[in-house]
Amino acid sequence: MREGAAAAGLRAENLSRIYPSGEGTVTALAPFTHTFPAGLTAVVGPSGSGKSTLLNLLAGFDRPTTGRVLVDGTDLHALSEAGRADFRLANYGFVFQSHNLVTILTALENVEFPLTLAGVPRKQRRERARALLAEVGLSARAAHLPSQLSGGEAQRVAIARALAHDPRVLLADEPTGNLDSHTGERVLALLTGLTRGGRTVVLITHDPEVAALADHTLRVRDGEVTADG
């Protein structure tokens, strides 16, 4: 709020993560500052370079060694554990590589789950969840449990869930990593469509073809982050 123009959107300031390892330390992420613009940012880099570490910090799953994460001016890591949970619920959507869904809930219930957490009345959240499932083309699978869905279907349900409360920021860690290329394309098409309305989508990927679809690219190598494009 005090930050003026810099306050808008998702911003990493002097952000780093150093893990203790044996007698020494591992710099999983060296300090870097970056403002994520609206639109799709692809985070690319070889395995073990620090991509997931970056995403965990942006999401508030992990604490940074230095620096901070600002979302519309709010310092994510200055919040309490519960406060951060509430903040995620209100501002973030997530899609992981796999096992995204709550196994005891149907596809529809999974999609409405963020709204359940927010205390939205059942009828209202059902309606919204149905609309979102329709958007990802899975109306026919509403009553299926995650174990009864294919990998691609599960990812599409996860995307629908990530959109349940229309979040500012969408974080995805290799959402197509476990999918064949055809199914992956379908999921990607959905994700690239989500940048409308000034939403910030951060997508971690190994795949250069996927990265080519992005508006911006962030390269990570041995924990060093560089922006291009």
Binding site: A59, A85, D86, L89, F94, F96, L117, R161
Partner: peptide
């Protein structure tokens, strides 16, 4: 058995108290 599932809930925005 559901460690992962609880983590998913927490990631989405469930508080520890939930």
């Amino acid at each position: 058995e559901r460690t992962r599932e609880f983590a998913t809930l927490r990631a989405i925005g469930a508080r520890p108290s939930f």
